[in-house]
Amino acid sequence: MKESLMEIVCCPIDKADLELDVEEREGEEILEGSLTCTECGEVYPIEDGIPNLLPPDMREDAAA
């Protein structure tokens, strides 16, 4: 994802701002990192350049 997306995306649950943490970057593309909600503290991973902003109960690691 591009860093300029930070002005557009928000937490899917409470719509609050997100805080970006970059682990790996290639030019303006953020490949690995995370987005943390400044309100509820939920952490959304950025993997392979695509942020996973699914609500927690729809994620891969959610309990079945």
């Binding site: 997306l5 557009i8 695509i50 902003l53 729809m58």
Partner: peptide, 17 residues
Amino acid sequence: VDLLQGDAAALPVRSER
């Protein structure tokens, strides 16, 4: 295109954009 994994019922997009 900027790609986001998200749920149509809980859009991770700011209001009125």
